[in-house]
Design a binder for these strands. Sequence first.
DNA 1: AGATTATTCAATAGATTGCTTGAATGGTCA
DNA 2: TGACCATTCAAGCAATCTATTGAATAATCT
Lengths: 224, 224
Amino acid sequence: MSKRTENRSPHQIHEVYVKIGKIAQTLGSPARLKILQLLSQSPRSVEQISEATGESIANTSQHLQRLAREGLLAATRQGLMRIYRIKSPNVTALWENLQDLAQELSQDLTAAETEITDATLRSPLGAREVMDNVRKNRAILVDVRESFESAETPVSGARAIPFESLKQELKTFHKDKTVYVFCRGRYCELASQAVRLLRNAGFNAFRLRESSFKLNQLATDRER
Amino acid sequence: MSKRTENRSPHQIHEVYVKIGKIAQTLGSPARLKILQLLSQSPRSVEQISEATGESIANTSQHLQRLAREGLLAATRQGLMRIYRIKSPNVTALWENLQDLAQELSQDLTAAETEITDATLRSPLGAREVMDNVRKNRAILVDVRESFESAETPVSGARAIPFESLKQELKTFHKDKTVYVFCRGRYCELASQAVRLLRNAGFNAFRLRESSFKLNQLATDRER
DNA sequence: AGATTATTCAATAGATTGCTTGAATGGTCA
DNA sequence: TGACCATTCAAGCAATCTATTGAATAATCT
């Protein structure tokens, strides 16, 4: 190993790795990942996040502050509440990439996914083809997240129907169209429950594992 | 916030976040990021890495073991040495994404980059256009990394000329072609030094910040 | 077999992190 | 103004992480 190779990294460059490392470290906590997962659907107040994750308010606040300090989140005031939001789409993108990599590297996660998502519920078609069919009006795409989530990160072509309203709304569906459902991503169970409900009602229904973010990425990939 | 939203994450799902978090945490140390940076160029032995990063052998070994335990690296024996390598291209991809995000989120890093890379050295053309010009034989692309690195992660269309040999090899270049140089990525100084050398020799030379991985990604993006 | 070499293991100290508790802040509303 | 509310702050303890040291291992060579 030559001497030149070694001394190409003086102090300054070390600091670069420290800085990048801090961001990675900030992602390295299950509590904070849950927060990112929630915020990648829609902005939320501290209390909302605390309630959804089951962590204490103080703890949640501190995690949020750390995420904000590292630049991943931004906060705005809204009356008494402080609303946190993802600062850049690239944050969501990295979170998705991290999930992908984690799943590739540990089969445990694939096992976890199949446990959450009964394999028979999953769409035999890839997301790209499904989106094509939806665009050609040959299939229905349903977004069963909470309505405030669907409103914040909508998927074009999808019908936003919160899980609670699905039983009502399903009556308006054409029986001869395949129905595809998505929720918050791979490890969200709402879509599975929705597919079961739809099948019981006689529909040909499947679940997509993709999140709104990925589905939208497919759409824009297509444009260019 | 509805009760249903809350109880959608039972124990199992918590474990998923723990697992993903462990991978992120593994990326959260400057020492390990330096290792990833080195290994994303080519496989290396423990000692080689230790020497390049300046960390002790024992410490390097432990970091490598942790990276391997989390599934990011794989190890093979070669005589007395143990050669570590990146296990999946997605690991390199995530490392690149992390750098991109870090740079977007903290201007400090952009400052660091401009400090390393004098702005006048940088290519006015984007990497994609440069690659096009190279393909059309209107420009020369030079890879100044160590030869064992270029051999392991080659960039098609690039001339692999280690920095040490550049002074010799430059005589074979056509004076009227623009020369573009890359090394290990954004924070590697070899390319800057090479550009200075080339300019002193009368060439119209620029540096690319992209790594071999990204340059190859551009090439395959193009195919589909 | 014994010496050599590259790597790993084991034990340790200091620093950092995660969560809890209870008090403090600083907007908002009557 | 004072009461109220969502959030933050400050202090503390247990658990984890990092780098160091010196010994142990395991493959190779004479």
